[in-house]
Amino acid sequence: MTSPLKPPEGDWWSQPVNRRESIWLGLGAVWSVILFGWMSVWTTAGEQNPIGETYRIESEAFREKLSAYKDAATETDEGLVPPGTDVYIQAMRFYWDGAPVVLEAGTEYDIHLNSMDVQHGFSLRPEDALSKQINLQVLPGYEWVVPMTFDEPGTYHIICNEFCGQGHRTMHGTIIVTEGS
């Protein structure tokens, strides 16, 4: 009996499996292992991973860090030039505090992300290649330190891509990447 509406009778567990179905099961198992293996290996061997240190922090404490950082940074027409390789950006309804910021290509920066109020989305792409885009969730209460090394100079745009209120669509910032020295 092989109706899905009737109880199978007899020793259905020992019914043979069609050869082609068995082959497919093998293929499926191999593919599953490849998917798992590739993703795992990439965390150590690959260049792009949504991985960084995370700290719990009150929004106010992050603001203090941000203002100390701003004091130490250099203001230019293009934006802030950070004093070292740490870059602080705080999302708040409806702008990115700390942007625009001027960085150099080829240098590894630690981008410190936090939200002052609600959840936001840090969505970044260079102006002239829209398909190169990455998206990270930004949460209040957490400081996420994500290292980034830009290889191409250019203007990178941050768009907020987590709904954060009526002004959400206007929440935009820039990162200017200059030729490395």
Partner: peptide, 24 residues
């Protein structure tokens, strides 16, 4: 189906590797 799966997978990874270096 499996071929479509593998091709889509490769394309997605190709796009990812075009990005700048991100993450620890």
């Amino acid at each position: 189906f499996l071929a479509a799966f593998v091709i889509t997978y490769l394309l997605n990874w190709y796009l990812l590797t075009q990005l700048w270096a991100i993450g620890a």
